[in-house]
């Protein structure tokens, strides 16, 4: 152990201890797999409605499709959730709210972009008031369609689950402290006046 004496009181270095504990738990005991598994069955989308795909988003959690059976429970506050479904067009006014919501969520966090508008503008590709969500937040899974049926949303959740399991996204966040597969996306438009002096 890295132990040093401070006036005869022996003090352990907490950072070192934390690193060792992490190595032990994630490396030797292979707890990473458990964490990834847990994350896949506990994808709670935050309540962020951006557009009309919200109608199909709501239908996905309705009794006929019932996405709660995959463990996904729409939750109220961004602090307690771990993924966003961007439902359709993101307008310039909404982009700021989207980014703030994303920043408020704890890591590891994921983003699903739903609908053609979230892919590349869809029907509104030449509108003056929309931004592409991938310019604002990093997106993990896209769902094409206008609007995508609830089955597609459920399918996207399963895709995201597979991605988390295969790439070990949740446990690698614990090890690295950052998701390196997603470079931080800085919004192209200064929608929130973040970096104006």
């Amino acid at each position: 152990m890295d132990v040093k004496a401070v006036d005869k009181v022996y003090v352990g270095n907490i950072n070192v201890a934390a690193r060792r504990a992490r190595e032990l738990l994630l490396g030797k005991l292979k707890l990473g797999d458990v964490i990834d598994w847990a994350t896949t069955f506990s994808l709670w989308p935050v309540h962020l409605l951006t557009s009309c795909c919200g109608a199909e988003f709501a239908a996905t959690w309705s009794p006929r499709f019932d996405a709660e059976q995959y463990g996904a429970l729409p939750w109220v506050a961004p602090r307690q959730t771990n993924f966003i479904i961007i439902e359709g067009t993101v307008t310039r006014k909404m982009a700021c709210a989207l980014r703030i919501t994303y920043e408020q969520m704890p890591h590891p966090k994921f983003v699903i972009a739903m609908g053609a508008c979230a892919l590349d503008g869809g029907l509104f590709y030449n509108s003056y008031n929309i931004v592409r969500p991938w310019e604002v937040v990093p997106v993990d899974v896209y769902i094409p369609g206008c609007p995508p049926p609830p089955e597609a949303v459920a399918r996207a959740i399963i895709d995201l689950r597979r991605k988390i399991r295969e790439k070990k996204l949740a446990s690698r966040w614990l090890i690295e402290g950052w998701r390196h597969d997603r470079d931080p996306v800085k919004p192209a438009d200064d929608v929130c006046k973040w970096w104006r002096p």
């Binding site: 951006t50 557009s51 009309c52 067009t89 307008t91 006014k93 909404m94 709210a97 029907l123 509104f124 030449n126 509108s127 003056y128 008031n129 929309i130």
Partner: peptide, 11 residues
Amino acid sequence: IGYVHRTMEKL
């Protein structure tokens, strides 16, 4: 309001 203003009239 205006968070979903998608400029229908202009388009």
